[in-house]
Design a protein around this nucleic acid. Structure first.
Length: 765
DNA sequence: GTTCTAGAAC
DNA sequence: GTTCTAGAAC
């Protein structure tokens, strides 16, 4: 089967039947959905319902398949009305789609379990309580094993509905789908759609789920060692189980035995507790660093109060080993005086490396009272955590940061091979370094509590911000597409911009640029002094390029030999005359050697030392304007030749080629050179900085915001017009070949898009 | 930036 | 088996 053909022919060919596979638990409203659509649709529909297919009674899957087949043959569109929560179950129905003649869609009714249960109960209500209880058990069980559909299964289109409004919208979409219409392909309506980041974390969590879920059913009741407010937790009731994977299919009506109501309930409890992001942290600096306990307790309570009010659904847990812990009792006493939600903050007695397995407390993040070298050993919490995490933590840490100065924190994702991850469900360790009052240890502050308190405050701020940054990237916490891990509203005066940038990244994997030079740097590492007499790496230490003065930022970038081509052209355009479209005093225009769209030219600055956007400063305002004007001129020229094109002008936040260049690129992205995710995302995420915005920023603040996070480049693939998601480049390309949606409003503003004059783009809608 | 390719995913 | 991705080398 050639999927590419399916997509490419979808828009132009009309009158295709649609096979809609409804996916949802009992009570999610599948039948209603089909009925509603059929009530007002002008297209012939058949609803194949396994519940009633046997002369009004439940039938078999085979019956459904044959019934659907014959309806499709008649040119009718079909609803498959059965749970379809299991991938394997769906696959046989997807196969019915066969070729390009039929569009295969999924509509996922992913509604709160509570709602499904209450509807199911009502449906069977007259049969009494027991029936209701059974319904709950069935729904719970199914949802715990649900496996949401993916485009890669063979769907052309998937619509996710997560609440009643979504369902209404989807009903209206299908109701108004006339016999000759077809719907755009792709994934629609999925919450937390943004990217790899989350996909990555989802995968991450799923891995953790296996052993943990197993643990939870086997040894459900481990003795919780402290006043964890989990068991009677009020979040539970609102929370849904978000677990995924196989359903054992079958139907709402049968399916009774197995898990009793009670066990389903307790499982539910487990799942929902696990869903609350939780940070466990030891008291910083009060042990080996001998910081005054009273003062430390005050700071903990103040910082906890500050941050817990900012987290809507997260828990902070102060952990110590012993019931006799002085710091725990001090903090408990002080917290009692304050108005802090005990669901959001509490203390826990136990080993921070075994919070779940021994204490039943699930924490996705734990803080480590680290040393400045971020090395294992030394005793205390640091030794315990490095021990428990295994060598993986050491290497993961090393990859991210070299050292830490007091008052700072560094978030390190735990490799999934680590025991902390598999056994305890911890996904991140946040290393924190507090102030030291112990003369036996480095950087002793000699009882200077002015400094000390400030540093300790900073340390907790850093810690909690680090935790917030983890949450930000988790599913359900939508992160703006363009948003880097920037700290908003939470300013920490002491930390330099450098350290906050450096230490507050939460990249799950390599950040290539840093790494490349990190290794090089560490060999000839010198370091610089910060205010506290601590050495830590400084970007000034980076390799200095011979040619020109460079700003700090671009200095950190070394250019490979292959990246010099544009630079050479800019410095000696006369040598490349044959390849250039235009040469002027300050810019050169040329066709991109590997165009990523039908028209793709570069406007190259000729200024020496101006390698990338990071180098651009106020003094370059004129140049930027010039580049933009020249870019527009060429866009206009192309638009004269072909009025159907639309152009966008902008810069890559972190270009691969040296020498500042403006991309002028048509938005068809029709090119064999557009081959991978990075290609696509470099033009279609925040990584691409519109020229108009760059000019604004340079003239107003003197520098352009860079969205150079690698994560942007590995984000999932989304159509730049309708924003639908696609599983791979070929499918994306076939989609954009026919997508007629209007461009997102953001692009339609401020002249970010350049259409032909008088061309009313986006006639649809 | 591209090319090449191993191996993952289908 | 083929398709697709992602990492290394350039």
């Amino acid at each position: 089967m050639d999927i590419m053909d399916v997509d490419e022919t979808s828009a132009p060919r009309e009158g295709k039947p649609v096979l809609v596979i409804l996916v949802g638990a009992p009570g999610s409203g599948k039948s209603t959905f089909g009925e509603e659509v059929m009530r007002s649709s002008t297209r012939p529909w058949v609803r194949v319902c396994q519940d009633t297919i046997g002369n009004g009674k439940a039938g078999t899957k085979a019956q459904c398949l044959s019934s659907a087949t014959s309806a499709l043959k008649d040119g009718k569109s079909v609803f498959i009305d059965r749970c379809n929560l299991d991938r394997e179950q769906r696959s046989e129905f997807i196969k019915l789609g066969g070729g390009p003649q039929i569009d295969v869609h999924a509509v996922v009714l992913d509604l709160p379990a509570k709602l499904c249960i209450s509807r199911s109960v009502k449906r069977t209500g007259h049969e009494g309580n027991l029936q209701g209880g059974k319904a709950a058990a069935v729904v719970n069980r199914m949802l715990q094993h649900k496996e949401l559909p993916k485009l890669s299964e063979g769907f052309n289109r998937i619509t996710f509905c997560q609440n009643v409004d979504d369902v209404k919208n989807a009903i209206s979409t299908y109701s108004t789908l006339g016999p000759l219409d077809s719907l755009p392909h792709g994934c629609f309506g999925q919450k937390n759609p943004d990217s790899k980041i989350q996909v990555g974390i989802m995968k991450f969590l799923k891995k953790a789920e296996v052993p943990l879920a197993a643990a939870s059913t086997k040894s459900d009741i481990e003795e919780p060692t402290s006043q964890t407010p989990g068991k009677n937790n009020s979040y539970c009731k609102e929370k849904e189980t978000l677990a995924s994977i196989p359903e054992n299919a079958n139907l709402e009506t049968k399916e009774v035995e197995g898990q009793a109501v009670g066990s389903a309930g307790s499982h539910d409890n487990q799942v929902c507790l696990n869903d609350i992001p939780t940070l466990a942290f030891p008291s910083i600096s009060t042990s080996d660093f001998q910081f005054n306990l009273e003062k430390a307790a005050d700071i903990i309570v103040a910082k906890v109060a500050e941050f817990s009010s900012k987290f809507s659904n997260a828990r902070l847990v102060l952990v110590d080993l012993s019931h006799k812990s002085k710091i725990l009792s001090l903090v408990k006493a002080k917290v009692a005086e304050k108005n802090i939600d005990t669901q959001k903050f509490f203390t826990h007695v136990g080993d921070i490396t075994h919070l779940y397995s021994r204490g039943g407390l699930r924490c996705n993040a734990i803080a480590n009272a680290a040393n400045w070298r971020l090395k294992p050993g030394g005793g205390g919490v640091n030794a315990a955590i490095f021990n428990a995490a295994g060598p993986e933590l050491e290497s993961a840490t090393k990859e991210k940061v070299k050292s830490l100065s007091p008052g700072n924190a560094a978030v390190v994702p735990i490799p999934s091979s680590s025991h902390l991850f598999t056994r305890e469900g911890v996904t991140h360790v946040i290393h924190v370094l507090g102030p030291n009052m112990n003369p036996q240890r480095p950087n002793c502050l000699n009882n200077d509590y002015n400094k000390g308190c400030k540093i300790l405050q900073d340390a907790y701020t850093s810690l909690f911000e680090g935790f917030a940054s983890i949450m930000k990237n988790q599913p359900g916490q939508q992160v703006g597409r363009s948003e880097k891990l920037e700290r908003k509203s939470l300013d920490v005066p002491v930390r330099s911009d450098y350290s906050s940038r450096k230490y507050f990244t939460n990249t799950d994997q390599k950040s290539k640029r840093d790494d490349d030079h990190g290794s090089e740097k560490s060999k000839k590492y010198k370091g610089t002094q910060d205010g506290l007499g601590l050495t830590f790496p400084d970007s000034k230490d980076e390799k200095v390029d011979s040619e020109h003065r460079r700003t700090e930022r671009s200095m950190s970038k070394a250019w490979g030999s292959w990246a010099q081509a544009l630079h050479q052209i800019a410095m000696h355009p006369e040598k490349h005359k044959g390849d250039l479209l235009e040469i002027s005093e300050d810019v050169v225009v040329l066709n991109d050697m590997y165009p990523k769209a039908r028209k793709h030219v570069l406007v190259l600055a000729r200024t020496g030392g101006l390698d990338c956007l990071a180098d651009v400063q106020k003094e370059h305002t004129q140049l930027l304007n010039k580049m933009h004007d020249v870019g527009l001129k060429w866009a206009d020229k192309f638009l004269n030749e072909n009025a159907s094109l639309v152009f966008r002008l902008g810069y890559h936040s972190a270009p691969s080629m040296r020498q500042l260049h403006l991309h002028v690129i048509s938005q068809d992205f029709e090119s064999t050179h557009l081959k991978n995710k990075k290609h696509w995302n470099s033009f279609n995420t925040a990584f691409f900085r519109d020229s108009v915005d760059v000019m604004d920023e340079i003239s107003s603040v003197g520098k352009a915001a860079l969205k150079d996070d690698d994560k942007l480049l590995s984000m999932e693939l989304r159509c730049h017009r309708c924003r639908s998601a696609h599983p791979n480049i070929p499918r994306l390309k076939s989609h954009i070949g026919s997508c007629q949606s209007p461009y997102p409003t953001h692009l339609l503003q401020n002249g970010r898009l350049v259409p032909a004059p008088g061309e009313p783009r986006n006639s649809v809608q």
